[in-house]
Design a protein around this nucleic acid. Structure first.
Lengths: 164, 164, 164, 164
DNA sequence: TTTT
DNA sequence: TTTT
């Protein structure tokens, strides 16, 4: 079906360090565990309550994975934009199981760091290592192909694009 | 945790009619099954491929449920804005299972119809039966309390707010 | 500055046909005029009121422009995702003026058709001519480079990617 | 027109302290000046370039304004969700002028602080004053009216909802 | 398992 | 005018 949109936007903190898996062909994938929380006052008791939601985030594409490996740690706060994908798998007893991930792919997905602390207690800080990584940069914001040499319409991820 | 965001935006079509459940206290909940699809050309074979993702969407709040009951049908195209929530439940064998829903709640969530056909093949068209329902209207878009009598800061869902 | 996000999401209808400009180098740009509306009940008078907002949308990138030229017309309903950009210009009297556009760029921006009618009153319908164009496809949704030949990390816009 | 969406999502920093205006009826409005930036490598020269975009953000609703007054300062990083609105006004010579704002309204709009430093060099820090304010909380995330006493479907902004 |  |  054309004419559809599948988009997730999260701002939250990593519950643990990023986990990277490498495939036989050298491709990489990175799993993030991201917490979002909300709090509200119970209308009956008047107590403040809080609920934390945990999200399985999958980064695909070598550039995104490299950024996560280098800059993200348990506790890091990030903005991610991706899409919902539900995977089917079999448990040990052979039963079908389903898991839903937020997939941030090389193109179209976005990962932006919102602090530089990396959750390690050292370094970082306000003027420090803040960084961001947008896997889908919109290129020269001043124009498309007009102006200057014709752009090779590259896209993809370029070492030089690491923005720190 | 303050400082977090958990947002899902979907545009897709209902795979079946909405399913409404009523609770003992009269509260209602509505389940929607929404499909989003994307297609791409396989880089190796050059063939066009397509993948459809199915989303469990839960509408909470009587106003949202009423709109869904009245206006949505299998095939309806909708815009929904909600948040990710993963539920834990036990299967027949007592094993823990998890399911992830897109929850569209009375406040903060949004449901907008993108066609007026309601999947029935009739009507619709540009000037026709388009409808929408925004559970979180921003009130008078021209102002807050300034101008006119002080707004009672209502919010919530009001019969008169059904926008068709 | 790393760590920032500038994103606009619109669902609305074209108030007139797309307007395409071609540059000396062959590059193209397309202007869309998109209306979004909201209605609410006046808290004082109880009357229903409506407000329409008009948005200047600029499509950059030959692929996006081509899709707009071929498929969009006055009345078409679209989903667009882009970013805010304010331009400075001089009026006839030499005074500085500013205009704010929603810029949908080749990478990162998205244009999806939500009807197939193209404003012409014909066709369309549920199983019919719906179309969409996502300038930032996430490639093979089943994987990155893992599986199959290494992906050339193309990106950009490809004639073959026109998804109709 | 029903069936439309007008949404802006920004993550950026305040270029100056919030500016609050109070109306005769006691209503309040707050202006924020928010910067978003992106950087990219020039395809011709290979140089890294950067572009900053400035956004006029208008907070409406006493709760949102109060939070901005108390917690935001020049330099604060925030997430805002609002809608585009273009205002018409007359300059000194009586000519029509237009300005486009991102309006964050009491319901439907969101303001979330992403740091606690408030740009003042004092206090805050990692474990400190982080805060957030969501003007459109989804209430009890575990349910609607089901469970417990019937919810008064309040909405609006409640002193007790200040989430710090 | 994060964060406040 | 912010931030990196």
């Amino acid at each position: 079906m054309a004419g559809s949109v599948n988009k997730v936007i999260l701002v939250g903190n990593l519950g643990r360090d990023p986990e990277v898996r490498t495939f036989q062909d050298g491709g990489k994938l990175c799993n993030l565990r991201i917490a979002t929380s909300e709090s509200w006052k119970d209308r009956n008791t008047g107590e403040r309550r809080e609920r934390t939601e945990w999200h399985n985030v999958v980064l695909r594409g070598d550039g995104l994975v490299r950024v996560a490996e280098q800059y993200l740690r348990k506790g890091s706060k990030v903005y991610v934009e991706g899409q919902l994908q539900t995977r089917k798998w079999q448990d040990q007893s052979g039963q079908d199981r389903y898991s839903t991930d937020v997939v941030v792919a090389g193109l179209g997905g976005t990962l932006t760091m919102l602090d530089g602390r990396s959750g390690d207690g050292g370094g970082g800080g306000y003027g420090g290592g803040q960084g961001g990584y947008d896997s889908g940069p919109q290129g020269d914001p001043y124009g498309g192909s007009q102006g200057g040499a014709p752009a090779p319409a590259s896209g993809g991820i370029d070492d030089d694009e690491i923005p720190f």
